[in-house]
Design a protein around this nucleic acid. Sequence first.
DNA 1: AACACCTGTGCGTTATTCGAACTGTTGGTC
DNA 2: GACCAACAGTTCGAATAACGCACAGGTGTT
Lengths: 253, 253
Amino acid sequence: MRQHGSASTFSKGLQVLACFEASQRSFTMAEISKMTGFDRATTRRLCLSLVETGFLTKGEQGLSLTPKILAIAGGYLAANDIGLSVQPLLDQVSQDLCAEVSLAVRDGDRAIYVAKSRSGVARVTLGFTVGSALPLLHTAVGRMSLGGCAPDIIDGIFQRLAPVQYTEKTETDPEKIRADIAQCARQCFCFLQEEFEVGAAAAAVPVGMLNGSAAVVGTTTSLNRFAEPEDLEQTLDILRQAAMSLRRLSIFS
Amino acid sequence: MRQHGSASTFSKGLQVLACFEASQRSFTMAEISKMTGFDRATTRRLCLSLVETGFLTKGEQGLSLTPKILAIAGGYLAANDIGLSVQPLLDQVSQDLCAEVSLAVRDGDRAIYVAKSRSGVARVTLGFTVGSALPLLHTAVGRMSLGGCAPDIIDGIFQRLAPVQYTEKTETDPEKIRADIAQCARQCFCFLQEEFEVGAAAAAVPVGMLNGSAAVVGTTTSLNRFAEPEDLEQTLDILRQAAMSLRRLSIFS
DNA sequence: AACACCTGTGCGTTATTCGAACTGTTGGTC
DNA sequence: GACCAACAGTTCGAATAACGCACAGGTGTT
């Protein structure tokens, strides 16, 4: 049931567009019809509109996104001054840490990377980019972004999201995850090992709010990077300084 | 007049969404109505749909994009394997060049950055990010992406686009720009100084086609970086090697 | 040949959308 | 305080865009 006064056909169309978040090279109209639950003819009309307006291209394998969607994403990044103020800072931090560093924000039931830097000397990459969506419950940036949320928000998230077993080390007990989120909030950092990717460790610290979304800065690297206890402290120190520098930018509140 | 069998309301809505490419922090419905030419009530309904579906948020200053659009852009990047295969390569090249390096593709009447790397030691950044849209006629990546286009495509572009005076050094004579595009095609590189940004020089070389769009790899740096004639040759050599490595990836054809 | 899957098309029906007109709020100026 | 500009919210009758069912065709596989 849509709110009075909006456009239901447009809303349906946006659901079709959102199907392309899945990292699939191309989709058939039949697949999209199944994903959205819309009638085949409805799906076809909406897909044709996306092709006409330049958001999709129609190839032999099916429908694919064009770079046009990137241009709108670029509008979000420019509006939030990511390129001029956040990126150079992350580039410096990545150099200091010799690891991938990212700024992520919570968007509904996931965390999304809005900036990312990886110096040439960093060895590990999981292939994430600006725009990558990460699970809230199983990543350092995800849990840290929940750290400042009201209990009813957290309750809602646990109602909608079931824990997922990404690796053998993934914690899947909801109560333990909740407790860890609360601890992250108290200690102002999150550190996870191999919960989301085998062989990978991740740390995150809170930054503040970016245009209404909780923002955190984090790093992902290989496990052996944290062989000594003081390795984590050193990393967190650098991330905290990064967060402090980020907070000085006018885009955070 | 829409093609038979597509959805005009959805197409209108997508025009509203496309307004947010402009790097403005927020927009009023009145501004969007002016930008699109739609009736105020129509604009309002379409905007409400974007808010309901989570693409926009409504704040005191007006409507702003949420990170949701980034997630779809992330789908494009993941579908094209940008994070796992292109980005590490650009990171390495950026380290080698000590400069910002980007992969751009032509999308209609502009070039869009799909990947970008800037090592911590690079001094210059213009603040562009993945998603930044650059003019075709006045940037190295833009002109180089036109290098492989058929004459009718180039004719169409010159019919739709008038040259713009970005700096005192910007070439605005269409015939001279055409001649330069042709020369870029012959010599397989483009090098421009201060045509788009004062104090900046840019070089680009072609890569191939990425999902139907012409892709080029380029670098932007300060003018004094090319004080000696052999400086450009060295940069082009590195970019050409990068292009060769990129072409080995299965995503280019 | 049969089957599964995907796509394209026509058309009667109706739900959605449109846009004009009216109303309300806010901030700035005099 | 009055007035104005700009923006936003709402209603509703009319028109049309969109829906979805049914039919038809193409392609690849067995």
